[in-house]
């Protein structure tokens, strides 16, 4: 047999192996999290606040972290959408294709996308010290919003770029202003907005390094913006460092909860993208 066929065989095998390795990692992660998490994932876990002696293995749950995470994610997703949709419109409808500002905007958002959350967190922390703010729900919301704006802009821009120019021209020829034509673009990028939202929610709920500095941690559900807020990833992290096995088991359960949320988001992402596409003109 010729050498090239031997080589072909070997590398075909290696490629299959590599794919299996990726699959193996995936299976191992899901299996580990499920196996360790399910035994301690009880209704009490998700419906109660930490009781007295919770961190010594006594009764209670992680409702504080669930509520804190949901508040931060919900608020920052809304804020992020409100800020990034106008930016996407501006770059794609108002600016010309070859515009320098558009080029720099895209590049900057790409770069911002790559900035790790710990840098955002450290930066926000200094700002908060500067203004005399303590760790709070508001701080967490601001950091997460900063973190997800680049995700929003990048993924919506990807879709908006491909919107046909004819469509805009048709709107203009009917006398629509640019602002009114944005409505046309909005329908076209609706699936993009849906996917972007799910992506950002996934990243926002899983982020720990950013909120570590800014949102703090508490056993209560925050009732005002200036109170500290607990978050799920930090709840996993803190409980995991405990020497008491019961507390560590609850960390596993919290991690499983977090993973389930991310899995659900990812699956709905695939389903929703199809549903929102009905107005899409190719």
């Amino acid at each position: 047999m010729k050498l090239k066929f031997v080589e072909e065989r070997i590398f075909n095998l290696l490629m299959v192996l590599a794919t299996l390795v990726v699959f193996g990692f995936f299976a191992s992660i899901i299996w580990t999290i499920a196996r360790t998490g399910f035994p301690s994932l009880t209704w009490e876990m998700v419906s109660q606040l930490p009781g007295g002696g919770f961190y010594l293995g006594k009764d209670g749950g992680i409702l504080n972290a669930i509520a804190g995470s949901l508040m931060i994610v919900f608020a920052s997703t809304l804020l992020g959408l409100a800020i990034s949709i106008p930016i996407v419109f501006y770059i794609n409808v108002y600016l010309k294709k070859a515009s320098r500002l558009a080029y720099f905007a895209r590049l900057s958002f790409d770069v911002l996308f790559g900035i790790p959350s710990i840098v955002y967190g450290a930066f926000a922390f200094t700002i908060m010290i500067f203004f005399g703010l303590k760790t709070s729900l508001l701080g967490g919301i601001i950091v997460i919003t900063l973190l997800i704006i680049p995700i929003f802009v990048r993924s919506m821009d990807e879709v908006a770029k491909s919107v046909s120019k004819d469509l805009l021209d048709a709107a203009y020829s009917l006398g629509a202003t640019k602002l009114e034509s944005c409505g046309v673009v909005l329908r076209q990028i609706a699936p993009g907005i849906a996917t972007a939202t799910l992506l950002s929610v996934g990243r926002a709920i899983g982020d720990a390094a950013g909120v570590l500095f800014t949102a703090g941690f508490t056993d209560n559900i925050p009732t005002a913006l200036n109170e500290p807020a607990a978050t799920l990833p930090l709840s996993v992290f803190f409980q995991l460092s405990s020497p008491i096995p019961e507390v560590r088991e609850r960390a596993y359960a919290a991690a499983l909860l977090l993973t389930i949320i991310v899995l659900v988001l990812s699956v709905t992402g695939r389903l929703v993208t199809g549903r929102f596409s009905k107005n899409r003109i190719k």
Binding site: V22, F25, F26, I29, D207, A208, A255, L258, V262, S266
Partner: peptide, 20 residues
């Protein structure tokens, strides 16, 4: 089969990776 798996792997929070 593999694309959704990559999606999920990309979305898993770093604290879960750390736990694993």
């Amino acid at each position: 089969v593999v694309f959704p798996i990559l999606d999920i792997l990309a979305g898993i929070p770093s604290v879960v990776y750390g736990l694993w």
